[in-house]
Write a protein that binds this DNA or RNA. Structure first.
Lengths: 127, 127
DNA sequence: CGGTATCCATCCCGATACTG
DNA sequence: CAGTATCGGGATGGATACCG
C-alpha cells in the first residue's frame, strides 16, 4: 500500500476522484495536468488492481471509460485528502523550516554538520 | 510534501518515531531493517529540512545522535499512521481484489481488455 | 557510532508515435 | 477517445569502502 501511494500521481488521482463523481480518462488527464496517458493508465491500473477503483467501459465507438472509487478507495482517498489538506494548511511553516535549514547548512563548511568531536566520554549521553 | 512522503522509507521513519520517543541512528536503522545508512541519512535530512524532525547531537566520542519528531512531524506522523493502520485492517480485502484482478486479466488475450468495439454510436454514452 | 564518498543497477517516468 | 508500444534519461536507492 505504501508503495502504491509512493507513485508520483497516485495520490492526485485519489484526491481527484474523492468526491465520488466518476470521471472519464481525458477529464482525469486534464485535471492532473502534466501526466501522460501512459503513466495515467499505469496509475489507474495499479489502483484498480488493489481494488481502490472501478473501471467501467461503455462499449461505444469511440470508447467511453469511466473511473470511480470503490468503498475501499474512498476510505484511502479520505486519508490522503487529510494529508493534502494538512500540507496546504502548513505550507508557511514548512517554508520557514526549509529556509532555516538551508541557511544553517549553507553557512558552515561541510564538515561541521556532525558533532564537533569535543573529546568527551560516552557517559555524557542520555540513557 | 507528497514528494517527500513518496520516498521509500519516509513513512516508516515517521511511524517509527510517532510515539514521541527520540531514537538514535542505529536504533532507527535496526527498526527499519534493510535501509542502508546512506539512505537513512538522506531520509532523515529531508524530514529535518521540512521541519518534521529534530536532530540532536551530543558531542561525545563516539558521537550520539538522537532524532525526534517536531510538533509538525507528529501531526504528519499521525496521518501516516492512520494510513498504515487502515492498510493493516484491509490487507485481506486488498489481497482478494488483487487476485480477482489478476485472474480477470491473465485469462483474456491482451487485446480484449478495452471496449469490445461494438459499432455503437457515441450517443449511447452517459452524460 | 554515525555518518560520507563513490560507483552502479534499476526503475520510474516522460516524450513520441501509433491504433481500434 | 482511450489507450498501447517503444525508447531513453534522470533520479532513487543499494553495495561497498572509508573516516572522525
Amino acid at each position: 500500500m505504501l508503495e502504491l501511494i509512493a507513485g508520483k500521481w497516485t495520490m492526485l488521482v485519489l484526491v481527484a476522484l474523492e468526491d465520488g463523481r466518476p470521471m472519464r480518462f481525458a477529464e482525469l488527464r486534464r485535471r492532473l495536468d502534466g501526466v501522460t496517458s501512459k503513466v495515467l493508465t499505469q496509475t489507474l491500473r495499479a489502483l484498480e488492481r488493489e481494488g481502490l477503483l472501478i473501471r467501467h467501459v461503455y462499449p461505444t465507438v469511440p470508447p467511453c471509460v469511466e473511473y470511480r472509487l470503490t468503498k475501499l478507495g474512498e476510505e484511502v482517498g479520505g486519508l490522503v485528502q487529510s494529508i493534502t489538506d494538512w500540507s496546504q494548511a502548513n505550507i508557511a511553516a514548512i517554508q520557514v523550516a526549509r529556509e532555516e535549514f538551508d541557511e544553517r547548512t549553507t553557512r558552515r563548511p561541510a564538515g561541521s554538520y556532525g558533532s564537533e568531536h569535543r573529546p568527551t566520554r560516552s557517559g555524557d549521553a542520555p540513557d
